[in-house]
Structure formats: structure tokens, C-alpha cells
């Protein structure tokens, strides 16, 4: 139920323009306004205040924009770490145009390495075969090649 205090709070929060009041409260506000002269006077004083506030003169600060725009600004100095990060992961510029396709091209390669590392895809490599190769290499080194006729 809308009353004087609630209506005053509504005016302070939402302003005196009824279009900005919450739609669910608009009807009860209208009913309250119709029934009470005190409430109408309160609304009128809020409307007057808002009107006067809107009429307050705006200062002429013509040269301010140029002053702020051209004020001396301290030079930016990036730390070596920032420069390295910029180089590795550029956020703009020509390198960004090359960087993204490069990353895109590398992704399948990385994906393949990761996948190959975890899955054998049916290709079985016996550990004993590796040992055999070591023996074979040792025998080759001891082989006598002097009998060979070239």
C-alpha cells in the first residue's frame, strides 16, 4: 500500500517524472496523488527542484579540451618482461596477423604429438626387439670385413 513516506522515497530514488517510476507502483501512486493534497504538493516541489536543476547554467570551458588533449604525458616504458610477453602474444599490429595463422597451423601438430604419446593405434613395439637391435649392432662391429672381395 502506497503512503506518503513510501512515495517520498520513490521520488528521491526515481525522480519526479512518473515515466521513470516502476510500472507496478504507478497505479498506486496515481491513486495516492488523487487522494491527498499533501502528496501533490510534495510532487510539485520535487518537479520544481528538478526543473531548476536542469536549468542550471553549464560552464563554458572552451579551451579545456585542447589543454587536456595536449598536456604533456609521461613516456611509457615497458619492462623487459612486458616486451617479451608482447612479442610472444601480441595483441595488435602486423605480427598478430602472422601469429594467429601460425598458431592455427601448429595446433594439429601439437594435437598429433599429444595423441601419439598416449595412444599406440595398434602398432605394438616389443621391448625385446630393441634389445635385439643392440646385439645386432654389436655383432656388426665385430664382423671381419677382410674376406670380402670388392
Amino acid at each position: 500500500m502506497m503512503n506518503f513516506d513510501k512515495f517520498e522515497k520513490l521520488l528521491n530514488v526515481h525522480g519526479a517524472d512518473s515515466r521513470s517510476w516502476p510500472s507496478e507502483l504507478r497505479r498506486s501512486c496515481t491513486e495516492l496523488l488523487d487522494s491527498s493534497r499533501q502528496v501533490r504538493a510534495l510532487l510539485a516541489s520535487h518537479q520544481l527542484l528538478e526543473k531548476r536543476l536542469n536549468q542550471l547554467p553549464v560552464p563554458e570551458l572552451a579551451s579545456l579540451e585542447a589543454t587536456v588533449m595536449h598536456q604533456p604525458l609521461p613516456a611509457r616504458s615497458l619492462s623487459p618482461m612486458d616486451r617479451l610477453l608482447d612479442w610472444l602474444a601480441p595483441t595488435e599490429g602486423f605480427t598478430l596477423r602472422l601469429w594467429r595463422p601460425t598458431i592455427a597451423a601448429c595446433l594439429p601438430l601439437v594435437f598429433g604429438i599429444v595423441l601419439g604419446n598416449y595412444y599406440s593405434f595398434g602398432v605394438m613395439v616389443e621391448p625385446s626387439e630393441l634389445e635385439f637391435w643392440e646385439d645386432e649392432l654389436a655383432m656388426l662391429s665385430l664382423d671381419d670385413y677382410s674376406e670380402n672381395n670388392f
Binding site: 517520498e8 522515497k9 521520488l11 528521491n12 530514488v13 516541489s45 520535487h46 520544481l48 527542484l49 531548476r52 536543476l53
Partner: peptide, 17 residues
Amino acid sequence: LESAIARAKRTLRKTLS
């Protein structure tokens, strides 16, 4: 904030009156 606005508006309405 709403309390501050309410107090400010009350003061200004008094001034205007």
C-alpha cells in the same frame, strides 16, 4: 547513496521554497 540523495533534495527543496 539513496539516503544522501534524499537529504540533498530535502535541503534544496527547502532552499527553493
